[in-house]
């Protein structure tokens, strides 16, 4: 019997390899964001894509505000997908907040993961003076929430949910699919709060699975201070700073992103681990 998780999380599996690469999208997006990098790994790996519940084409009916109030619920989604497909030795690739979600999943079930690739991760987005620079103040996040609110429920999208339910207007539905990756303003806001108000610094020390931190240049969401902090505090981690700027190198600079990932994957796990430990 096919697990209900597969349709719930809109899971897609393809590729000719056997070792799974599980790609987890970040806040504001869905699995489509990976389409510039997955072709590079199709030949050697089994690619697994999914949407978190509440994002993309996941089943919105499965959205539970309690479960997804914190990153724990999203962590459960990762583990659910792994178990539904019986994944082993997973190479986890997570963008932005999914970097932290991947770490939490690896702490819950370290036996499932071989290594973690974290693109623009941050254990805490809000500054914690005087010692920690996350890049934002609380008021900045409130500004984001306001901007989101305007875009999700402002006049432009005010009627979108009603239109989406109208089967007589398929062209509107198509238009909407080309819009933001989550169309539910309440879910999007909750995901934003779970993401930007999270503080996972205390979870870092317990991580046993080796990881690659892909730090972009000029990334306002995960500034270089955050990459340095993670590199210091995350056991078994390797920090790699990209030339790519912004927060989405897998979309803005897919070639460099692919190259860095490949290089990391070619190093043996043990080597990665011991090198990181020595470093």
């Amino acid at each position: 019997m096919v697990s209900p998780v597969l349709s719930r999380n809109n899971v897609k599996v393809f590729g000719r390899g056997t070792q799974p690469m599980l790609f987890a999208h970040g806040f504001g997006c869905d699995q489509n964001m990976w389409r510039f990098v997955t072709p590079a790994f199709e030949n050697d790996y089994r690619i697994v894509l999914f949407d978190y519940v509440g994002s993309g084409k996941s089943e919105l009916a499965s959205y539970d505000p309690e479960r997804y109030a914190t990153l724990d619920g999203y962590t459960e989604d990762i583990l659910d997908v792994c178990r539904a497909l019986d994944l082993r030795e997973v190479i986890f690739v997570g963008h932005s907040v999914s970097g932290m979600i991947g770490l939490l999943a690896a702490n819950r079930a370290p036996e499932l993961f071989e290594r973690l690739i974290l693109i623009g991760p941050s254990p805490r987005y809000i500054n914690d003076a005087p010692d920690y620079v996350g890049g934002f103040e609380r008021a900045d996040i409130e500004g984001l929430l306001e901007t989101m609110e305007k875009n999700y429920i402002g006049w432009a999208n005010f009627l979108a949910p009603a239109i989406m339910k109208n089967p007589d207007r398929p062209e509107l539905t198509a238009e909407l699919e080309a819009s933001f990756c989550s169309t539910d303003p309440v879910i999007a806001r909750r995901f934003a709060e779970a993401t930007f108000f999270a503080d996972n610094r205390a979870d870092l020390a317990a991580v046993q699975v080796p990881s690659l931190i892909m730090q972009c240049s000029e990334d306002i969401i995960a500034p270089s201070e955050v990459g340095d902090y993670l590199s210091r505090e995350l056991p078994g981690s390797t920090l790699q700073t990209l030339r790519a700027t912004g927060h989405c190198p897998h979309m803005s600079h897919p070639e460099e992103t692919i190259a860095v990932m490949r290089e990391y994957l070619q190093a043996p796990v043990d080597g990665v681990q011991s090198a990181a430990q020595i470093g």
Binding site: M33, F136, E142, L144, S179, F180, G246, H247, C248, M251
Partner: peptide, 20 residues
């Protein structure tokens, strides 16, 4: 961009431009 809109740009606007 104001800070909130910067985040929005990175998490929504740019991915939208890039994907669509």
């Amino acid at each position: 961009l104001a800070v909130g809109s910067r985040i929005f740009y990175q998490t929504h606007f740019f991915p939208l431009l890039r994907l669509h």
